[in-house]
């Protein structure tokens, strides 16, 4: 067994041990910027004893399942199957020897484990403006990558596809992730206090339309990356979304594919 590899995203770390040194090396390359230096402590760590299998078929066309396990939960898809034991922070299981399969597994695991840190993964691009973060959420094709690309010359991009949102007493924060979209580039490994959330709407004019809490919640819920059906997980995820829409302004952001939307954001600051 080689030296474990530790990936830390938004305070949640996954310490991976495996006999498959070359696959660990691939993982280290893929998650560059999110590999944790030795000696520092994450807020929450899980220890994954990983087995890889060259012969497992790719499974990206199938939906992963989060099932109840004996003392925790299981995450399954055709190309991975792991058991998660939250009480001992241990994970065991197998994953296809394929970086895309591993990335999918990591996303699903984070979608559940982040709940312990009052966090969730939101289909959104997000950028920093100084120490503040703007989060642009929407379904596929809504313009997440476009807004990230148009911002990137002047504003650091936390993600163009999936942002981690965490509740904090002193202001909710958006965290950069290595879960990329069309930009195919890891976000930066930092966070910003969220100023507002914006639902992306492609239009021929740029404008902001404020949303009441319930319509905001209706728009946000379908954009949460979530596969678990268990009562405690669902209740927790809904609670987090309810807090977000009550504590933060949420807008429809009508925009054109040019940087003019940044003029709208000046009014929100």
């Amino acid at each position: 067994m080689s030296v474990p590899l530790e990936i830390e995203i938004a305070g949640l770390s996954l310490v991976i041990s495996s006999d498959d040194c070359s696959f660990l090396s691939q993982i280290a390359d893929r998650y560059e910027g999110f590999i944790k230096p030795p000696g520092s402590r994450a807020e929450l760590s899980y220890f994954f004893s990983m087995t890889t299998d060259e012969n497992l078929a790719a499974g990206s066309e199938t939906v992963p399942e989060v099932a109840k396990g004996k003392t925790g939960y299981r995450i399954l898809r055709r190309d991975f199957e792991i058991d998660v034991f939250p009480a001992s922070s241990e994970i065991t299981g197998i994953v296809a020897r394929n970086i895309y399969s591993f990335d999918s597994l990591l996303r699903v695991f984070f979608s559940v484990a982040l709940l312990e840190l009052d966090g969730l993964l939101l289909h959104s691009s997000s950028v920093l403006d100084g120490s503040k973060a703007f989060v642009f959420f929407g379904v596929s094709g809504s313009g997440k990558t476009t807004t990230a690309q148009l911002s990137s010359p002047t504003h650091p991009v936390l993600s163009d596809e999936l942002t981690i949102i965490r509740l904090h007493e002193d202001g909710h924060r958006a965290y950069g992730t290595p879960f990329w979209g069309e930009m195919q580039k890891n976000g930066i490994n930092t966070s910003g206090k969220i100023t507002a959330l914006f639902q992306l709407v492609k239009n021929t004019e740029a404008k902001l339309v404020p949303l009441r809490p319930m319509p905001a919640l209706q728009r946000i819920l379908p954009c949460v990356l979530f596969f678990a059906r268990q009562e405690n997980f669902v209740q927790r995820a809904v609670d987090i979304c309810c807090r977000l829409v009550q504590d933060l302004p949420v807008y429809e952001m009508h925009f054109l594919p040019d940087p003019s939307f940044w003029r709208l954001l000046a009014d929100v600051k």
């Binding site: 009441r212 319930m214 009562e231």
Partner: peptide, 27 residues
């Protein structure tokens, strides 16, 4: 028991036409 349900305050920002009557306190 698995159904998550929440009541939220109606709030002030609105994307809709004015309501006929007073807005509800919550949704």
């Amino acid at each position: 028991p698995h159904a998550a349900w929440r009541a939220l305050p109606y709030g002030t920002a609105s994307t809709e036409a004015d309501l006929d009557g007073p807005p509800p306190e919550q949704e």
